[in-house]
Computed example of a mutant assay.
Amino acid sequence: MNEKIKVLVVDDSLFFRGVLTKKLAEFDHIEVLGYARDAFEAKEKIPQLKPDVVTLDVEMPKINGIEFLKQLLPERPIPVVLVSALNISVFDALAAGAVEFVKKPELSKSDTISAFIEELAAKITIASRAKVTPITGTSKISATAKPSFAPINSSRLVNTTVIALGASTGGTEATISVIKDLPEDTPSILIVQHMPPGFTKMYAERLNRICKMEVREAVDGDIVKNGLVLIAPGDFHMKLAKLGSNYVVKCFQADKVSGHRPSVDVLFNSVAEVAKKNAVGIIMTGMGRDGAQGLLNMRQQGAYTIGQNKESCVVYGMPMVAKNIGAVMIEASNENIPLVLRRHLATL
């Protein structure tokens, strides 16, 4: 029998500390070692208790979660799952080295709290298998040298070439490293990142400030065009469709696919059907198999397919499954994927 995942809860809210410590302890595979009321208490308890995973509220008194992560992870690279309200600082905490996050529920809804605990337990399981890389400096992405891209005939690729990218755990930062320096003439990129409602819009706005391409949360009917990155909205599937001479995206709610909504498989399967050989598929870090079959369908229709390599993944799950079933044509680190992508586009 596998050993239990040992968890330390860090939260300044008496209510949430109580809920988390009580409810997480009900899972057979989780052992709650205790709690800390703030970062100072957590720094004292972590060396003593040696948890496998820490759950962390981002907004805390004295030292916030982001500063805590910057101090903790270089000394002890422990997987951290953020437990936060809808707040842009979540992405700063992910940039500082946290591997997952869960949105805090509305306290008045017991069914919402139950779903929240189920999701948190699942994220703790994923985090326990994650590779944590301590971050030095202010950001994971700031030290990356700007690549020199091969020129492409962008006018020839307008409305013909589509890039589809799927990611989960560790994907928020890995995706930034892929797209942040891509030139404005890059064909449209459609992204599914497993993320709850509200956060996808903030994530798109964050990327739009960083990237040369325009980035925004997708809206049903958006036209796909060069220089535009569209991110699937949380709790909505996104697929590619054809409308006259244009590609468009359709955003819709339906049953979860591969355990997710949005699902990478939904996007990849639609791109395989609609764009066929005029497409590139990129599957990145994440737990499970979402996107693997869709990427195989893309490759079988003539698309060029890229998988993030094991060494650079926080969780080598989705790319591994895709590779094992023959969906991946080439593997590369998240930092090298932009070069691989542009070299391929230059051959079209």
Rank of each mutant, 00 (worst) to 15 (best):
N226T: 15
M329C: 11
A95M: 02
Q71G: 12
R156Q: 14
V83F: 00
A127F: 06
E331A: 06
I124G: 02
P134L: 03
I113Y: 04
R342Y: 03
K250L: 14
A25S: 15
N159A: 13
N246S: 09
E26M: 13
K146T: 15
I66L: 09
T305P: 04
G166M: 09
R129W: 06
N324P: 07
K62G: 00
G307S: 02
I152T: 02
T347D: 07
L207D: 05
P79N: 05
D52M: 04
E217S: 06
L72D: 00
P105F: 01
Y35F: 15
M287Q: 11
S168T: 08
A143D: 13
I163K: 10
D185R: 02
N87Q: 10
E3T: 11
A95N: 15
S154N: 13
V315D: 13
R156E: 14
K276H: 06
F15I: 15
Y304R: 04
V102W: 00
V10T: 03
A322Q: 06
D181I: 02
K250I: 12
I179P: 00
Q300N: 15
I179V: 00
K239E: 15
K22L: 07
E67Q: 14
A232G: 10
I30M: 10
E3C: 11
L94I: 10
S84N: 04
K6D: 04
F16G: 01
F91Q: 00
K276V: 12
T347P: 08
A346T: 09
F236V: 09
I113D: 03
G170P: 01
F236P: 05
E118F: 12
A25W: 10
V266D: 04
M284P: 05
E67Y: 07
R37G: 15
M202D: 05
H344R: 13
G307N: 08
E59V: 12
P187K: 05
L267V: 07
N246V: 00
F252N: 05
V53T: 10
S89I: 09
T169L: 07
A346L: 09
D235H: 11
L24P: 07
G259K: 07
D28A: 14
T125G: 13
M202H: 05
T200P: 08
V178L: 01
E41T: 10
F236L: 14
F199E: 09
E119D: 13
L69N: 13
R156A: 15
G291N: 12
C313Y: 12
A327V: 03
F91W: 01
N87K: 13
F16S: 02
I141R: 14
F101N: 00
P233N: 09
M1P: 09
Q253W: 05
I5N: 02
A254H: 10
K140M: 11
P196A: 15
L82H: 03
V32F: 09
F15V: 15
N246F: 07
V80F: 07
N324T: 12
D28N: 13
G326W: 01
R261M: 06
G18T: 01
S13W: 02
